[in-house]
Each structure stands twice: as C-alpha cells, then as structure tokens.
Amino acid sequence: MSLLFLGAGLALWFWGTWPLLEQRSYLSKLHKLSVSDTLGSGLMLLGLLLRIPSQWPLLALALLGLVVWNTIFGYVLARCSQPAEVNQR
C-alpha cells in the first residue's frame, strides 16, 4: 500500500513538473506545479507514514508544513507575477 502512495506521488511529480519545460503561460505552469509539489509530495509522505509509522509525529508535521508552505508560496509567486497596479488595487 505504501508503495502505491509513493508511486502515485512520483507520477504526480513528473506530471506537474514536465510542463515547466513546455511553452505555457506562467500561471498555467504554477497550477500544474501545485499538483506535483503539494499533492504529489503529500501522497509520498502518506506512503512514508505507512512504511515507518513510528515516525508519525515528524511526518505529520512535515505534511502540515508542506500543505501550508507550498500553497502559500504558490500564492506569493502568482501574486508577484502580476503588474504592480493589480496588486495595489
């Protein structure tokens, strides 16, 4: 079961990272990167949680930090990509 989560997380990583190399809009790349960064890594941590349950406090902390940090960092990158007048409205 843990291998399933780890494999699914790895698949999401590749799916979300590959568009970085393509000709797409910046925001479109950010949408897909959030899939690999947050959701893919989340699945991997769940896989690790099943594999080494004795380390659950640190893995739970990592999962919480990952979801909050990655999501807010995505928001900061998206906001900074906008012209100054949009941000100052």
Binding site: L27, L30, H31, K32, S34, V35, T38, L39, V67, T71, I72, G74, Y75, A78, R79, Q82, V86, N87, R89
Partner: peptide, 12 residues
C-alpha cells in the same frame, strides 16, 4: 490556492 483549478492573484 490549494485546489489546482484556482490560484488567488490578489485581494481588492
């Protein structure tokens, strides 16, 4: 922003 369909760009 957590959901892949949407990203917040700003608050006005």
């Amino acid at each position: 922003t957590l959901t892949p369909f949407t990203i917040v760009l700003g608050l006005s």
